[in-house]
Structure formats: structure tokens, C-alpha cells
């Protein structure tokens, strides 16, 4: 077990450094550097040279990379060329909004999807199973931005139950904040329920075929215990991996949803910064998402042996 953890941690460090290199290279590949973009057409060559020297842009790439990493390690992600604010503070403030929505949606989706998927697998090929699979396939086929728009029209416009535009932090006014995030959370949750139900069902069907399930029944165990103690833990392991992947993808794809609901999240920040050519912020957003994705996968890998003790040994 200890060696498993140690190996996972060292692999994570390797991936993290590769992630940093990738982000750095991607941003360097963009035509035009931050200095010329900040000064625009009006800047003189001297001003450009001064700014470049100050930001280290006149150095070769490897040196720039080391400076950048050094800065990152001390919490210095650079400053936004648009507003002059420190990038890290800017991103973290916006990240909270996205994280709340993604985590809430995922929690709801897992709580609904896993039991429903298990039930459908248990009733495989029945009408209930067919209904579950059909609804799930429909749900996962709907683009989040369209579903969000439809929910806005129905609950915001026609029924007027919820506000259409805006955002308030949870610290300021809890109930109003809640009213703003219900629809985006519901949108994401509905789609992820579609994905997870199918996954949970498929892996539960695999497990139900195995002999240890029959063995459990042959001991006289009631069905609910068979499902809870023998099917669920084994079927959940692959679903757990998928949850990790989905969390990362949600974070990456949240920009569209935040655009629909006009939420000040990190995705929105990234798109705004791309339009404003605010590359330090773009770089920060990419890096943070990459790092979080790697961390989520690490957490998943750490949890995995609980459901499947075999991996810890391999």
C-alpha cells in the first residue's frame, strides 16, 4: 500500500511538471508577447525593450521557464495585463464560483445516478431498465448550454420562480446566492446523471454476472445486502475513475454554462481574458485547471483501493 501511494505521488509530480511545461509552451506559441500586446500599436521600440527586460521576455525560453516556475512556487503567477491585478488572486476569486457549481452538481449526480444505475442493472432488460437507459441517453445528449437556456426560459421566464441574470456570493446573502446557482447546478447535474447512470449500470451488470454474487446469494443473503455489499463496491470502482475525469472536464467546459447564466466563474474569466489577450491570466487558468485535474485523479487513485484492494498490490 505504501509503495502504491509513493509511486502514485512520484508519478503525479512528473505529470505536474509536464503540465507546467505544456502550459508554458502553449502560451509562448501565441503570436505576439505580453509586452507588445500591452503597449499595442502606440508603443515605441525602447518602451518595448524596457518592458521585455522587466518581465524577462528577452531571455531564452528555458531561463524564462525557470523564472516562471520560481515565481509559481512563491505564489507569484504574474499580473493581469488588462487590470494590473495579481493573477492568482483574480483566478481564485472566480474559481470559487465554478467550484461550488461543479461540486454541487457532481454530488447530486452521484447520489442520484449510482442507486438508479444499480437498480436498472438489477432489473436488466425490464421496462424500468429500458426507461432509465432511454432517459439517461437523452440527458447526456443535450448540450449543457442549450439545456441551461431551456431551464432559464421555463423556470426564470415562464414560471418566474428563479432570477434570470446575476450572481451574489454565498457569504453575502445565502438564499439569494442559492437562487442564482440552482439552475446552473441543475443543468450540470441532469447531464452528468445521464453519463453516470449508464456507467454505473454497465459496471453493475458486469459484476452481477460474476460468481461471487451468486456465492453471496447461495449464503442466503437478502437481495439488498447482495447489492449493497457485493455489487456496489465492485461496480463503483470504475465509476469512481469516470467521476474524476468528468470533474476535470466540467471544470474545462464550464465557460459555456457561465456564459449562459452570466456567472462570474473561472471559465468566463478565461474566455474574457482570451478576448482581451490577457495572457498571464490565460496561462494561470490553464495551469490551475491542469493542476486540479491531476489532483482529482490523484484523489481518485487514493480512494480506488478502498473499492478494489487488488490495485494496491499490482
Amino acid at each position: 500500500m505504501a509503495t502504491y501511494l509513493a509511486r502514485r505521488l512520484s508519478m503525479m509530480l512528473l505529470t505536474l511538471s509536464l503540465v507546467a511545461v505544456t502550459v508554458f509552451v502553449l502560451v509562448r506559441l501565441v503570436p505576439g508577447d505580453s509586452a507588445s500586446l500591452m503597449l499595442g500599436e502606440a508603443g515605441s521600440l525602447e518602451q518595448l525593450a524596457i518592458l521585455r527586460a522587466r518581465w524577462g521576455l528577452d531571455q531564452p525560453w528555458p531561463i524564462q521557464f525557470l523564472y516562471w516556475i520560481k515565481g509559481l512556487l512563491s505564489g507569484d503567477f504574474g499580473v493581469s495585463t488588462r487590470t494590473g491585478e495579481p493573477v492568482l488572486a483574480l483566478i481564485l476569486a472566480r474559481f470559487q464560483v465554478s467550484a461550488v457549481i461543479v461540486l454541487a452538481a457532481m454530488t447530486i449526480a452521484v447520489l442520484v445516478a449510482v442507486p438508479v444505475g444499480l437498480y436498472a442493472a438489477w432489473k436488466q432488460n425490464s421496462w424500468a431498465d429500458l426507461a432509465v437507459v432511454s432517459v439517461a441517453t437523452l440527458l447526456l445528449s443535450i448540450p449543457s448550454f442549450w439545456l441551461g437556456l431551456l431551464l432559464l426560459v421555463v423556470f426564470g421566464l415562464k414560471l418566474s420562480w428563479l432570477p434570470i441574470l446575476g450572481y451574489v456570493g454565498f457569504g453575502e446573502d445565502f438564499s439569494r446566492a442559492l437562487s442564482f446557482v440552482i439552475l446552473p447546478v441543475a443543468t450540470l447535474a441532469l447531464i452528468e446523471i445521464g453519463v453516470l447512470v449508464r456507467m454505473a449500470r454497465a459496471s453493475a451488470i458486469e459484476v452481477l454476472r460474476l460468481e461471487y454474487v451468486t456465492h453471496a446469494r447461495a449464503k442466503g443473503m437478502p437481495e439488498w445486502r447482495v447489492l449493497a455489499f457485493h455489487v456496489f463496491p465492485n461496480a463503483f470502482a470504475p465509476t469512481l475513475t469516470l467521476i474524476g475525469l468528468i470533474l476535470g472536464n466540467l471544470l474545462g467546459g464550464i465557460a459555456v454554462l457561465e456564459t449562459v447564466f452570466t456567472l462570474p466563474g473561472m471559465g468566463r474569466l478565461l474566455v474574457e481574458s482570451i478576448f482581451a489577450r490577457d495572457y498571464p491570466v490565460v496561462q494561470g487558468c490553464l495551469l490551475l485547471t491542469g493542476v486540479i485535474f491531476v489532483l482529482i485523479n490523484l484523489i481518485v487513485d487514493m480512494l480506488y483501493p478502498i473499492f478494489d484492494p487488488r490495485v494496491a498490490r499490482a
Binding site: E211, T214, H215, G220, M221, F229, H230, P233, N234, P309
Partner: peptide, 25 residues
Amino acid sequence: RMRQLRGRSLGMIFQEPMVSLNPAM
């Protein structure tokens, strides 16, 4: 009634020892 009998009066042993015990327990 079957659940009472299974395990107590009726036992079963399976073919594949690799998959007849729950790997997660």
C-alpha cells in the same frame, strides 16, 4: 424460505476460485 435454506442447509462451491470470492471484501 429459500434464503433460510441457502447457506444453512444448502451450500455451494463454484468453479473459478478467481471470481467466486468478492475481491473487495
